[in-house]
Simulated assay, not measured.
Amino acid sequence: MACCFITQPIDERAVAFLHDHGVDVRYASHASMESVMAEIGDAQAVITRDLGLNAEAIRVASALRIIASHGAGTNTIAISEANARGIVVTRTPSANSRSVAELTMGLMLAAARRLCDADRAVRTGEWDFRYHCGGLELHGRTLGLVGFGAVAQDVARIAGQGFGMRVYAWSPSVPDHVFSDLNVQRIRDLPALVRASDILSLHRPSDPGTPPVFNARFAEALRPKTILINTSRGSAIDSQAFLDALEDGRIGAAGLDVLPLEPPPATDPLLTCDRIVLSPHIGGATAEALFRTAMTCARQVLDVLSGREPPHRL
């Protein structure tokens, strides 16, 4: 019987699907690469979440045929090692895009209306916070989307149709008709997008070795008190450029679901800045998204083990 090794828990309905189709399932005892390497054995398939799979673990798994990433990103998987060994790598684009888009809007609202500060004010008896909170209305603001894939397209729908925002976007690869279909203005020059936007939301994929899209040049083009949202990858932001922009007021507030190091060290200056709303990489962590993502992984595992081409192979 074929075996699928799962590094971290996934929706049990996907596990049942694999069982029903004759695939045995084993879980790692701990979500660590050491446990994976010790326990992966002769598994033909792996489903991994943010733990990924490094080159050493791939080399240990001599029978491995597919690595299924439980998410759209594959930056924690040693792609070159997998390719060298003829191992298929798949991902799950769009499975969690609506959930990530909704969190993007949630972080945008939280940053614009200072919701975390407001919550603390009520709990500590600072009721007069309402007189000086300085919140911003999203309606009529210009939202700039850096990248225009599935998540950004869902954000555009919610922001434009639901909040009445002007939506601009930059992408070097998405066809023109996608922009026009969603009533989004295409900006072909990234610094021009940055200069035009009240709120910027990052949606570019980030692979190992890819330079951060938010760098010093990006920061120089910011309007004063821009709101920055990042639900893509922590590596999309150069930390020093970001901190400098916070300090000099080019960034007025930010909402970050992803960080350069996860979890962040206790000394990370982001943890002490009250103008940043933080969440622990939960963009796709809804029941609906987790089910869709797990089932997409399971179906692609079955495809490869059955000799079929999976739909979302890298």
Rank of each mutant, 00 (worst) to 15 (best):
M1Q: 01
A2M: 11
A2Q: 05
T7G: 01
R13N: 14
V15L: 06
F17Y: 15
D20K: 02
G22A: 02
G22V: 01
R26G: 01
A31H: 00
V36Y: 00
V46M: 10
A57M: 05
A61Y: 05
A63K: 15
H70P: 11
A72M: 13
N75Q: 14
I77R: 02
I79W: 10
G86T: 11
V88K: 14
V89E: 13
V89Y: 10
S97E: 07
M105T: 08
M105P: 07
G106A: 09
A110F: 05
D117H: 09
D117M: 01
A121H: 07
V122C: 02
V122A: 05
R123G: 00
R123Y: 03
G125D: 06
G135M: 08
L136A: 11
E137V: 09
L138I: 00
L143M: 00
V155N: 01
V167L: 07
V174L: 07
D176A: 09
H177R: 14
V178L: 13
F179S: 10
I187Y: 09
D189R: 04
L190I: 08
L193M: 04
V194M: 04
R195P: 11
L200F: 04
H203Y: 05
H203E: 04
H203F: 05
R204V: 15
D207I: 14
R217G: 04
R217M: 02
P224E: 10
T226G: 04
I227V: 10
I229Y: 03
I229L: 09
T231A: 13
S232M: 08
L246H: 10
L246D: 07
E247F: 11
E247R: 15
I251W: 08
L256C: 03
V258I: 12
V258R: 05
P260F: 12
L261C: 14
P263C: 08
P264N: 12
P264F: 13
T267A: 11
P269G: 03
C273D: 15
V277L: 03
P280T: 02
I282W: 13
G284W: 04
A285I: 14
A289N: 10
R292M: 10
Q300M: 06
D303C: 06
G307I: 05
H312Q: 14
